[in-house]
Amino acid sequence: MSTTPAGHVARSTVRPNFETSRRTPLRTFLHTDDGVTIDSVYDPSRAVYDVSAQPAGHLAFVVAHGFTGDVDKPHVRRVIDAFAQYGAVVSFSFRGHGASGGLSTVGDKEVLDLAAAVRWARELGHTRVATVGFSMGGSVVLRHAALYRSGQEGRTEASSDAVVSVSAPARWYYRGTAPMRKLHWLVTRPEGRLVGRYGFRTRITHREWDPVPLSPVEAVPHIAPTPLLIVHGDRDGYFPVDHPRSLHEASDGHADLWMEPMGHAEHAADDELLGRIGDWAVGAAG
């Protein structure tokens, strides 16, 4: 499949009608607003319905994976398959991950990747989009929802109608757990970035943030009125429970908070939880 010329609005160069696209998986490269190519996949809904009666605007999930994940990894595919029971799914590899171009900025410029994927879902005919992110992706969906919230002039094409953040950090530079200290070594040390490149297929920038981007907890107050669900495990080895509680408190009662008996991100989210998230998104994105 050919790709869009750099600098154009993120879109697939194939322009399928919705009746076809919702039955046939599609794969293409999208282009972000800063010109990075993003490997992206569209999976049609597997929900049982009368296709001829289904309106073109039915729900699409846009899945944002965690750090070192990509669209082809089994734990990401399992999440995609679960949400496809509730609606169509757009998934993608963040910059620097898998077959996508660019370098990972570990949650900063990745907001542009998510915006490109949301625009593509809307191009395919979906008028309702729920963004669901895990770990790093969880921080990205929060920041995206604040920066691209509905009603901002020129940004509604890329905004979401419901947001689910799973296992996300509340604040940057957290090193209070052993896994996060290892992650900081991976990101900040030259030898760590080599491990990321060759061990995890993740290419990480050596540049420090400048300026430091809006943190997840700073983003949350700006998400309303978009429905928001915060999901976190009480056994999360990366981010302890003060992180989701801080996010929930910052929402001033707007967000739903689910504390679950689980560990961290996609690997820990079982099918039952993913099903409940799917149900919540269907109702919230209404």
Rank of each mutant, 00 (worst) to 15 (best):
A88S: 15
V41P: 01
P244K: 07
R78N: 12
A47M: 13
A162Y: 00
F200M: 13
E272P: 01
G286P: 02
L183Q: 13
R11F: 00
L142Y: 04
F83L: 13
S159V: 10
Y148S: 08
D279R: 15
R203K: 10
V195L: 15
P227N: 08
A178P: 07
H97D: 11
H254Q: 01
A82K: 03
A146N: 07
P55H: 09
A99V: 00
S160Y: 08
Y174Q: 08
D270E: 10
A170F: 11
F18H: 14
P169D: 02
G107V: 00
L30W: 12
P221D: 05
P74S: 12
L229F: 06
H31Q: 14
S167E: 09
D43A: 03
V163M: 01
R276G: 05
L59R: 10
V187T: 14
P211T: 01
V36A: 05
G107C: 03
R22M: 02
G96N: 04
S160I: 07
R203A: 10
D161L: 01
P5S: 11
P190M: 07
A158Q: 15
L124Q: 11
R189Y: 08
R128E: 12
S167R: 05
D271T: 14
A219N: 10
S104L: 10
G96M: 00
E208G: 07
V111T: 15
R207W: 04
R27V: 03
T32V: 06
L26R: 09
A146P: 08
V14W: 09
K109A: 15
G7R: 07
M136W: 10
V51A: 15
E266W: 01
H65Y: 04
V166R: 02
R245K: 13
P211C: 01
G286A: 15
R27Q: 14
G138N: 07
